[in-house]
C-alpha cells in the first residue's frame, strides 16, 4: 500500500527546500548553480503532480523544465562569453 500523503508532503518539503536553496543557498552567485538548484524544486513539484494523478501536466513539466534549462544555459554561456557581469 502506497501512502500518498507521504509522497505529497515530501514533494512539498522538497519544493520549499529547493526554492530556499535557489534563493539563498550556497554558491548561488554563480548562475549555473542557481539553475541547477531550480531542478530540486521542480522535482518536488513533479512529486506533487504525481500524487494528484496529473499525468499530462507531469510530462509537460518535465519537458519544459529541460527546455527552459537549455535556454538558460545558452543565455548564461553567451552572456559570459560577451564578458557581461552575471
Amino acid at each position: 500500500m502506497i501512502n500518498i500523503s507521504l509522497f505529497f508532503y515530501f514533494g512539498i518539503i522538497l519544493a520549499v527546500v529547493g526554492s530556499i536553496a535557489t534563493a539563498w543557498g550556497p554558491g548561488v552567485n554563480d548562475p549555473i548553480v542557481r539553475t541547477f538548484n531550480t531542478e530540486v524544486a521542480s522535482i518536488g513539484v513533479c512529486l506533487v503532480l504525481l500524487c494528484y494523478n496529473h499525468v499530462l501536466a507531469l510530462l509537460t513539466l518535465l519537458a519544459t523544465t529541460v527546455i527552459i534549462s537549455l535556454i538558460l544555459f545558452r543565455a548564461i554561456i553567451r552572456l559570459e562569453e560577451m564578458g557581461a557581469d552575471v
Partner: peptide
C-alpha cells in the same frame, strides 16, 4: 540586481503557480 538571476528566479514563481493550480 542582475537580470539573469531574476530570469532564473522567475522559473520558481512558475512552480508556485503550478502548486496553486494543481
Amino acid at each position: 540586481r542582475e537580470e539573469i538571476h531574476i530570469l532564473i528566479l522567475t522559473d520558481l514563481v512558475g512552480l508556485a503557480m503550478i502548486f496553486v493550480v494543481s
